[in-house]
Design a protein around this nucleic acid. Sequence first.
DNA 1: AAAAGTAGCTTATTATAATAAGTTATTGGT
DNA 2: ACCAATAACTTATTATAATAAGCTACTTTT
Lengths: 266, 266
Amino acid sequence: MEKLQQDFNQFPTFIHDMTDQPNRIPQYQYLYETLRQDIIRGVFKAGDLLPSESVLQQQFRLTQPTIRQALSLLVQEGYIRKHQGKGSIVQAIPVGLGVMSLKTHSVTADEKPAASDELSAELITTTILVKPYLRAFPLELLFYPTDENPTTTYYYMERLRSVNNTPVFYEKLILPNRYLPNLPRQRLSNRSFFDLLRTKYGLVVSGGEQKIQALTADEPIAKQLQVKPGRPVLRLEKRIDTNKSDFSFFSLLFARTDQFLLQGRF
Amino acid sequence: MEKLQQDFNQFPTFIHDMTDQPNRIPQYQYLYETLRQDIIRGVFKAGDLLPSESVLQQQFRLTQPTIRQALSLLVQEGYIRKHQGKGSIVQAIPVGLGVMSLKTHSVTADEKPAASDELSAELITTTILVKPYLRAFPLELLFYPTDENPTTTYYYMERLRSVNNTPVFYEKLILPNRYLPNLPRQRLSNRSFFDLLRTKYGLVVSGGEQKIQALTADEPIAKQLQVKPGRPVLRLEKRIDTNKSDFSFFSLLFARTDQFLLQGRF
DNA sequence: AAAAGTAGCTTATTATAATAAGTTATTGGT
DNA sequence: ACCAATAACTTATTATAATAAGCTACTTTT
């Protein structure tokens, strides 16, 4: 039997009936993505109350535990905040999981900024400095692959992310040569690398570990970030775990934080 | 009319029978704490398999969803890692929630360090530089209290954390003057401040937001951290949320990362 | 008018149950 | 001895149901 429901609410006729699909997405993940998109696209704005759990149950034909599983993901990512007896309140600043977002810090304490002083995404540009190629694991990292299944070769690439043409992030990415067919042929700039991994390769970031350090810029880094050598820069090294437990990748990022700073939630 | 319920609760004999207790701890939290302690105390060691969910069900007389709720907390904190069809594997390095831990980084890539190069806790000492006193919210912070219930006065204190007598963290803490009776009279040094909040005041950290920056040490910071003025230091500002939604507090931390670096999971 | 009570919303916790799907070890056949 | 099928584990997903408890707004009482 298929679910035949009339569905006269604002969003169309979805219901996500993937019966028999081999790569079935869990319902709670689908609901999470749906609500997340709605928040990002502004269907629900900061301060709004999300539909109550019982309303969501009816709308999506799911039961409370499933709804709650989706909502708890949203809580974890900071999209909403729940209050017992009150509801789920949409928060501003949807910050990605561990992926720190940019935020200007030209905020003096007496002039509170407007509700959203987030940078609009259009101002951020990504340049590929080094296109992905295969090589050995770079010795520069403090992490080393824990290789439950050892991989000998890794994709290596370098990106530069700029805000208003000011370079801010200089990032080196190292990914195991696995699960990633045709990576060098993918369109990489001006696009979230994490979205690419998710949509093209089914890899979802599940967490990771990071090591942070303040140091002075050496010559090559200073050149990329357009600062004087000797200026303080942030070194952020991450091991990023995914839903596939034998696939973790690494990021080594240098950031100038004189105009922008790193922000994240925990 | 009051609710006349007999309260012949199903959980009769066993553990953790807090029937009628006003501050009943949820079963999943109790289980989480129990397993967490077992891992910390070494009952389960890194690499071990945790008892399976069905075994835990029998041992604790709980059902699978409850067990899974506790386990998912352990996953979130990095204590275990779950593998479908295999079990829950205990991980090393229980890193506290967002509270970054110290780790030496004198690791060259070719000499892999031993399984645990974590610093033993005994080497870390905490000194109170400024004992808690009441004052207005300091302008130094980028965060400002979102005050759903505005608080006018805050506890302010300064701590210095050293490793082997080398100062590493210089921290300023700002806490709303609420829920914290007798704070100035508490023993504060050489003790986890978070443990104090939890045990004495029932405040459990639930997450937060942080802003990170690399900058050069000015005179007072250089003096506290015993580095030359102008050396790069890390500035880490956090808003720390708790289980009481009207109680968030703030931490402004300066760290020298030349010998040690900040590490955390996300 | 102010306070107390209450009804009706909300999320939170927990139990029970069934099925799916990944992993490992055993078994049986060649 | 090797290999494939399979049995017996494991965690993952989802549904249904009952009860607890926080919040809000309305109603009643004082």
